[in-house]
Amino acid sequence: MENVTESIGKALHDKFGDALVKQELIVDFPTFTFKKESILDVLTFLYDFEIYKFQFLTSICGVHYPDNVKEEEFCVVYQLNDMVKNQRIRLKVYTSEAKIQVPSVTSLFSTANWLERETYDFFGIEFIGHPNLTKILNMDDQPYFPLRKQYQLEDETRDDKDDSKFGR
């Protein structure tokens, strides 16, 4: 598996240079961190990559790291699968809270449509180029993005429950 990470990483580095920020192997997943501007180009490159053809987008999800440095509070994780050679990889891009925008990949994968809408719905990450970026699971007029870490699970105005001993 480490060889796979190395070989894909080398090809990506040759092609994208400094846009590839980091490569690592997490458990069984080769993981590559990119600068957010390049994500659509990277996915397009990997779609017709010579060794593996990553033509199946497994999932997209957002993560909020409130304690990260200013530029990297939000992360979007893409997981791809080459079904023929049975190889999966994970790509990550980080974005700042101030300019929370990531290029949309809907032009390449139809799957990304609702997955990006869901990520927008829960984290407020704006996908540039998405055909219809609206909330999907929550109410249309919900004024906040619920999966951000600053929002408590319960209504913050309640004082009849003490949850300080549970969870985080």
Partner: peptide
């Protein structure tokens, strides 16, 4: 969609 959304991903964090 979303009529029976129950915020499982948020619940799981607690």
């Amino acid at each position: 969609v979303g009529y029976i959304h129950r915020a499982f991903e948020k619940l799981a964090e607690r």
